[in-house]
Nucleic acid binder design. Structure first.
Lengths: 127, 127
DNA sequence: AACTTAAAATTACATTTGTAGTCAGTGAGA
DNA sequence: TCTCACTGACTACAAATGTAATTTTAAGTT
C-alpha cells in the first residue's frame, strides 16, 4: 500500500542488483556509491527496516543477522512507477517524454538504436 | 530549490494548461477532475501558496484576489523530472522504460507512430 | 465611512521521510 | 561459560506533505 521513498529506492535498487545482502554488505556497498556515500550505517539499517515493513523486501536469519532479499519485483515496480510518472507529468502520453530526451540531446545513439529495435518488434507484433 | 510535491503538481499542471487562473477558478476546475475532486477549497489554496513560496508560480493582484500564473516552465520541469526519474529507476537508460510500455501492451499505435517519427528526425539530425 | 464577506495569510496537525541514536538480545571468541 | 561486539528493534526529531481551520485584511456594497 505504501510508497517506496527515494532513499528506500536506492537500497531496493541494490537488492535488485545483488539478489540478497546482509545489512553489513548493504552498508559496505552503498557507502561507496554516489547516492549512499554519506549515509550513516544506522540510516541504511532504518531504510532496510522500512522496506521490510512496506513488504518490499523480506529476510531470513543467517548467522547473527538477517539476509535481505527483494519481495517486490523490479519490473513490476518499474512498470507501475513509470505509468504513474507519465500520467502525472505527461497526461499519460509516452512520446512527449521521449521527445524531451531527443530535444535536449540526451538521446544517445545506443538509445536510438535500441528504441528502433523496440519499435520494429512492436510493428511485427502488431502487423 | 524545493521539490514540487504530487499534490502541488496537480495544481501546477492546471496552471500550465490554462495559463492563468484565480484561486476560485482553480477550485472550480480542480474539483471536477479526478485528482482534485475531493479536495477542500482550503486545500487548493494551500497548494497555491506553497507553489508561490517555491517560486513555481507567481501572481498579480486582480480585483479582490490574485491571478496566478506559472513561473516554472513546463518543458524544463518535465525534462528535469524525467531525467531524475529515469536515473533513479532505470540507471539513466531511457530504452528500458519504453520497453516496459511495449511489453505490457500500453504502447498505442499512435505512440508508436510518434516515436518512429521522433527517431527518424533524430537520425536526420545525427546522420 | 462603515460593514460585510471573500481572499489571502497564518496556524494546525497527523503522517511520511531523511537521518540517526539508544536499547536489548545473542552468537562467536576468550 | 562468560563477555562483548554486532545486529535488529525501538525511539527520536526536524522537515516535507496532505489536508484543512482560524485569523486577518481589504474590495465591494450600502
Amino acid at each position: 500500500m505504501n510508497e517506496i521513498s527515494n532513499a528506500e529506492l536506492v537500497v531496493l535498487n541494490l537488492l535488485w542488483q545483488r539478489g540478497t545482502l546482509t545489512s553489513a554488505q548493504a552498508v559496505e556497498v552503498l557507502q561507496q556509491t554516489d547516492a549512499g556515500k554519506d549515509w550513516h550505517e544506522k540510516t541504511i539499517k532504518t531504510l532496510l527496516s522500512r522496506l521490510v515493513k512496506k513488504q518490499a523486501i523480506g529476510f531470513e536469519k543467517q548467522g547473527r543477522g538477517y539476509c535481505y532479499f527483494p519481495l517486490l519485483e523490479q519490473e513490476s515496480y518499474q512498470r507501475q512507477a513509470s505509468h504513474s510518472f507519465i500520467d502525472r507529468l505527461f497526461s499519460g502520453r509516452l512520446a512527449p517524454l521521449v521527445a524531451g530526451f531527443a530535444k535536449d540531446k540526451s538521446l544517445t545513439a545506443e538509445d536510438a538504436a535500441e528504441l528502433q529495435k523496440l519499435l520494429d518488434e512492436w510493428k511485427d507484433n502488431n502487423a
